[in-house]
């Protein structure tokens, strides 16, 4: 049995009468790439926000990296990295300044920041851009950079919220290479996406419909279960039942 790093039990979030996330229960194992799929408005982002301590659950329980989402959000925050849908680096700072800022708020020492920045810039091939403003980088590089920044403090788990939105297929592929590289180092990846080809890259995926998890398994098993060859079919089959319209 592999180590469980995220564990939820009937986790629920209500906003007034509206139940955004309805009793979801799942486990994520150490080192896996866990895909979190669902149509727009299905509750993916809300679920993720509860796990990273941005939003308090209404009921149910969950632990992330062994810490309780109600009481130990501070501990959770130290152990996770997060990359949001929106591009989240500072455009008016240079690449290096962004790295040292994020290093700083995660409490890395100056020496650590120095080594990390050198490493990161070399691995991304940004030597010539290190002192340029982030605003001047192409979107694909920005996204790779923000992923690397999210990993700066060597978190156990990294949460990616639709990390590849608006990026061309080639860059997406390169982005997934980075995800694999991180996964090989033992980092658990929790990624939401609505690109179904990306779902195939995950070890296991869950599909959310109207706030509930309707399916959870490896892509192969899901395809078998729904008796089809593509994830698209699986997704359409499930999403057809959705009542929520965005």
């Amino acid at each position: 049995m592999r180590e469980v790093v995220i564990n939820t039990n009937k986790l629920t979030k209500r906003f007034g009468d509206f139940t955004a996330v309805n009793e979801i229960t799942f486990e994520v194992y150490n080192g896996e790439i866990f895909g979190f799929l669902g149509a727009n408005g299905a509750g993916k982002t809300t679920a993720m926000r509860m796990l990273i301590g941005l939003s308090k659950p209404t009921s149910g329980s969950a632990t992330v990296a062994g810490f309780d989402v109600y009481k130990q959000t501070e501990n959770i925050k130290k152990n996770i990295g997060y990359m949001s849908q929106k591009f989240s680096l500072y455009e008016d700072l240079t690449v290096l300044e962004n790295i040292s800022f994020y290093g700083g708020i995660y409490g890395l020492s100056d020496a650590q920041i120095k080594t990390k920045s050198d490493e990161l810039i070399t691995s991304l091939g940004l030597q010539n851009e290190a002192k340029k403003l982030v605003a001047s980088l192409p979107l694909g590089w920005k996204q790779k950079l923000s992923f690397s920044v999210a990993l700066l403090h060597e978190p156990k788990i990294v949460f990616l919220d639709e990390p590849t939105g608006g990026v061309d297929p080639l860059t997406r592929r390169q982005f997934w290479d980075l995800i694999y590289a991180a996964s090989d180092k033992g980092v658990t990846i929790f990624v939401t996406t609505h690109y179904l080809d990306e779902a195939e890259y995950c070890n296991r995926i869950s599909i959310m419909v109207d706030g509930k998890i309707e399916a959870l398994d490896s892509p192969e098993n899901l395809k078998k279960q729904f008796n089809t060859h593509s994830m698209d079919e699986v997704f359409y089959e499930l999403a057809r039942g959705a009542k929520r319209v965005e």
Binding site: G53, L54, K77, I80, S84, Q85, K86, F87, I105, Y106
Partner: peptide, 13 residues
């Protein structure tokens, strides 16, 4: 607006 606030709030800061 730019979404960086979210990142800051997720950090231990």
């Amino acid at each position: 607006e730019t979404g960086t606030m979210e990142i800051l709030l997720v950090s231990p800061f």
